[in-house]
Design a protein around this nucleic acid. Structure first.
Length: 887
RNA sequence: GCCCGCCUGGCGGAACGGUAGACGCAGCGGACUUAAAAUCCGCAGCCGAGAUGGCGUGGGGGUUCGAAUCCCCCGGCGGGCACCA
């Protein structure tokens, strides 16, 4: 280590010089208190408590066991721990559990790349991360820990699935998937990058597979409506979910083909604009539409066009370029209202099979995509909605569709109606003819949960040639993953396993095939919060336990899960209610979404992009520039951005805790800024937090000569002032913690520490009662900071009460003495026309006449008022006197 | 394109419509030290020699005795969704 570097200068030394005096030794203290809490079982609660304390369930999103904890975890679990410790002190029985989201692809990748079994890799990672989390001093009930990859967990998930199946909440259907032909697996949309598989790099194909779906769309209306009841969720998360669910009102209508094609006589279309039916100029269907397939069967050009669409997919590239492509099938459809009129049927790349019915009617004048398409292929553009104040004779649509309000025209019986009325009239007319009806459409689609992977929860069904799909009987659960699998070839190892999938049909006993797909890992995380309530039960959840603890009062995690995980959990909870497992519908009464942890990034100057460097590889110069620690070459200090392995701008929490201690890391991560915003991790900031831990400890040490005693009968000026600060701080920190303003709580505690420092200077005067006031202040400093710095708080308390202290973790939250919250004197600002002209000191709650009189007498104010006529005197008690003057 | 959020010193940020910039980081001056670190004392929005002078919360307007805060317009940044029919 070099002493020129900022990093070296800031850290504590391993061996303090003798002259420095004692220092807080976090290396000894933190493990000691962690052990004390564990031995006393401070954070344990019962599945079904009987002690009558009100319950509080706080939980952070459980980690994926990737190997090491990262700063995002530190922030997440620190935030949750502050809430847990604070609520516990406030008298709640707090359930604060931890577990592992342990299934997932990285374990399989490790198996393929390094030959280590996914289970071994996962459990080794868990063991390591558990040690790291324990070093943070979190107030967790570790007795509730589980990993989702344990059969003891996933057997209950299988049971839930079978219950859902029985209740009609599960469907097996064909669906289009992204297929990686090299890896032989289905890819999630996120895993398709520029039309290629993220691992294999092979062009992704669209393929139709039979998959299991959870019927989340059955709950679409209530999942949307209940968002309004989630008043302790961030507004933007509720908005994102509302957009995702995507309710729209429209009509479904059927167009008759002039001549049936392969037995298909009608095309069903969904539209939100039935009022524009008279502006129709074509009908377009998705490439995956059955009618398209029928045409392709006899028309090689159509087949080629469909193949082309399938290659580019409906994602990424095709959408980016935005080029509309179509193929005229030569088929014609009739208009529902205009007798004798017919329109061409196109296959178009911009029509999605997944939304609506996979077919649209094109009204180019009033839809931009339809217009782009019509212009490209020279189709008719007939406006049928006249904008307000536009002239029907001259109004025309050029390159921009008109989508605003207006009056129907060129539309026969709809003419003269506004858009809303025309929609209603059109729907009525469709219904009267029996060719359509008004419907509500949802963007939300059913949740495909089948994955062709090994490291996931097996889907507990058996396929029998005779009986069809047969659920695995309860007494055969769990369907365990086989251990002896190989990863030496692409595809699903479960499918390759020589014996696993071959079973007897539970219904008829004939040879049958086990389902080899496993669940999407989002299934694992959709009910773990319920399992925590009774983690050892031999049923998925014990009703009395979930009835007591659920819903989660405060859930904390990253905004990246704003949609999928939270929506799936909300669905799962409803499905569990329907199948009798739980009483509540909403799993998370309160949600807090934290910001990311960011850091400067560094890279070498050479090359177009340079090479990314880790923070410990560079050395900062006082002028802000940086050089390579070893080679001395100049380094480009890049943007502050989210910590990521690829940018190498990561800070290892383990190293920080080893160097500064858990309390310092926790304190810094809370103090820097509001927790919902992104924070920048800086070495200087951590060092500052570390200095504060030492300072607080020194304050306790400085009181070593004084004894704890009864409250004095009288205090001097300094003592009274200090006590006021102490009790104001109790009130302010309490308020800040209640509102997640942890950075403000930290600021108030710094202020209290500064007041203690002032009192230390005054202590030489030996004012009566001052030592007592100092003891009180330091004790409150410790107890109020205990949710943030729990180890230091214990250490300070044992110093203040040698031999006789109760664990801070067991102490109730301090209460401010209301008498001390009232100031002896208040400063009132005096304004003239809203401009500050002076201040006056008054007794609190002085009457208006007295305050105004004192304000007018203030020299600077009096001078400014000279020769002016006071028109109005505004008095706000204890705050403001404002004079409105004329002349 | 649609929807949402944000914009305050060098930086992170504080501020029930009521003294803008608390608190921290970085900085500057001083004490202690051979020196440094640590610690302690002090300074610190901008302009101004200075003032309880002026100007200041992205820009412009409005409401109000009084606006960082409420309303309208504009700009910038960030996020979500998106051939969604």
């Amino acid at each position: 280590m070099t002493n020129a570097g900022l990093t070296a200068a800031a850290g504590p030394r391993a061996e303090p010089a003798a002259a420095e005096g004692p220092r807080y030794d976090f290396r000894a203290a933190e493990p000691r208190w962690q052990l004390a809490w564990a031995e006393r079982g401070c954070f344990r609660v019962e599945d079904v408590p009987t002690d009558g304390r009100p319950k509080y369930y706080v939980m952070e999103m459980f980690p994926y066991p990737s190997g090491k904890i990262h700063m995002g975890h530190v922030r997440n679990y620190t935030l949750g721990d502050v809430v847990a410790r604070y609520k516990r002190a406030r008298g709640y029985a707090v359930l604060h559990p931890m577990g592992w989201d342990a299934f997932g692809l990285p374990a399989e990748n490790a198996a393929r790349e390094r030959g280590v079994h996914p289970a071994k890799w996962t459990f080794e990672n868990i063991a390591n991360m558990r040690i790291e989390l324990k070093r943070m001093g979190l107030s967790l009930d570790w007795a509730r820990e589980f990993a989702t990859c344990q059969p003891e967990y996933y057997r209950h998930q299988q049971k839930l699935f079978l219950d859902f199946l029985k209740a009609g909440l599960v469907e097996r259907k064909e669906s289009w998937v992204n297929w990686d032909p090299v890896d032989g697996t289905v890819l999630a949309n996120e895993q398709v990058i520029d039309g290629r598989g993220w691992r294999s790099g092979a062009p992704v194909e669209k393929k139709q597979l039979s998959q299991w779906f959870l019927s989340i769309t059955k709950y679409a209306p209530e999942l949307l409506a209940a968002l309004d009841t989630l008043d302790r969720w961030p507004e933007r998360v509720r908005l994102m979910q509302a957009n995702w669910i995507g309710r729209s009102e429209g009509a479904r209508l059927r167009f008759s083909l002039a001549a049936p094609e392969a037995g298909i006589g009608q095309v069903e279309v969904y539209t939100t604009r039935p009022d524009t039916l008279y502006g129709m100029s074509f009908l377009a269907i998705a490439a995956e539409h059955p009618l398209a397939a029928a045409v392709a069967a006899r028309d090689p050009k159509a087949a080629a066009f469909i193949a082309e669409c399938r290659r580019s997919g409906t994602s990424e590239v095709a959408i980016e370029t935005g080029e509309k492509q179509g193929y005229d099938t030569g088929l014609r459809v009739a208009h529902p209202f205009i007798a004798g009129a017919s329109y061409p049927v196109w296959i178009a790349n911009f029509v999605l099979m997944e939304y609506g019915t996979g077919a649209i009617f094109g009204c180019p004048a009033h839809d931009q995509r339809d217009l782009d398409f019509a212009r490209k292929y020279d189709l008719d553009v007939t406006p049928v909605v006249l904008p307000p104040a536009a002239d029907p004779a001259s109004f025309a649509v050029g390159t921009e569709a008109y989508v605003g309000p207006g009056t129907a025209y060129n539309s026969d019986f709809l003419d003269g109606l506004d858009v809303d009325a025309a929609k209603r009239a059109a729907i009525e007319a469709l219904a009267a003819r029996g060719v359509g009806e008004g419907v509500t459409n949802w963007r939300l689609r059913d949740w495909g949960v089948s994955r062709q992977r090994y490291w996931g929860c097996p889907i507990p069904v058996i396929h029998c040639a005779a009986c069809g799909v047969v659920p695995v009987p309860d007494d055969q659960l769990p369907v365990k993953l086989p251990d002896d699998v190989t990863f030496d070839r692409p595809g699903n190892p479960l499918d390759h396993h020589p014996t696993w999938k071959h079973v007897a049909c539970p219904a008829c006993g004939k040879p049958a095939r086990r389902e080899t797909d496993t669940f999407d890992t989002f299934v694992d995380s959709s009910w773990y919060f319920a399992r925590y309530c009774s983690p050892l039960a031999d049923v998925p959840v014990v009703r009395a336990a979930v009835d007591h603890w659920m819903p989660v009062d405060q859930y904390i995690g990253g905004i990246e899960h704003a949609i999928l995980h939270l929506l799936y959990s909300r669905f799962f909870t409803r499905a569990m209610k329907e199948t009798g497992h739980i009483a509540v519908e909403e799993p998370f009464a309160g949600l807090f979404t934290q910001g990311m942890v960011t850091h400067e990034s560094y890279r070498t100057a050479e090359g177009p992009a340079g090479t990314w460097l880790y923070p410990e590889e560079i050395e900062k110069r006082p002028d802000g520039t940086a050089v390579h620690r070893e080679t001395g070459e100049p380094i480009v200090v890049g943007r502050v951005e989210a910590m990521s392995k690829s940018k190498r701008n990561t800070i290892d929490p383990g190293a920080i805790i080893a160097k500064y201690g858990a309390d310092t890391a926790r304190w810094f991560i809370l103090s820097d800024n509001p927790p919902e915003r992104d924070m920048e991790w800086t070495e200087a900031g951590v060092a500052g937090a570390y200095r504060f831990t030492q300072r607080v400890y020194r304050m306790a040490e400085a009181l070593d000569g004084t004894a704890a005693a009864d409250i004095p009968t009288a205090f001097g000026t300094d003592g009274r002032a200090l006590r006021r600060v102490t009790h104001r701080t109790i009130a302010a920190v309490t308020e800040a913690l209640d509102s997640f303003a942890f950075n403000v709580a930290v600021a108030r505690l710094y202020e209290l520490a500064n007041a203690v420092s002032d009192a230390e200077k005054a202590a030489a005067s030996a004012e009566p009662g001052l030592d007592w006031a100092r003891r009180e202040a330091v004790e409150m400093l410790a107890r109020l900071s205990a949710p943030m710095m729990p180890h230091l708080a214990e250490e300070v308390m044992i110093r203040l009460h040698p031999g006789g202290a109760t664990l801070v973790a067991d102490l109730p939250w301090p209460e401010a003495d209301p008498a001390l919250l009232v100031a002896e004197s208040v400063t009132i600002a005096v304004q003239i026309m809203g401009k500050l002209r002076g201040t006056i000191a008054m007794p609190p709650d002085s009457p208006a006449e007295q305050a105004i009189a004192a304000a007018e007498a203030e020299p600077n104010v009096a001078k400014a008022l000279e020769g002016k006529r006071i028109v109005k005197r505004v008095h706000v008690p204890n705050r403001i006197v404002n004079f409105v003057v004329a002349g």
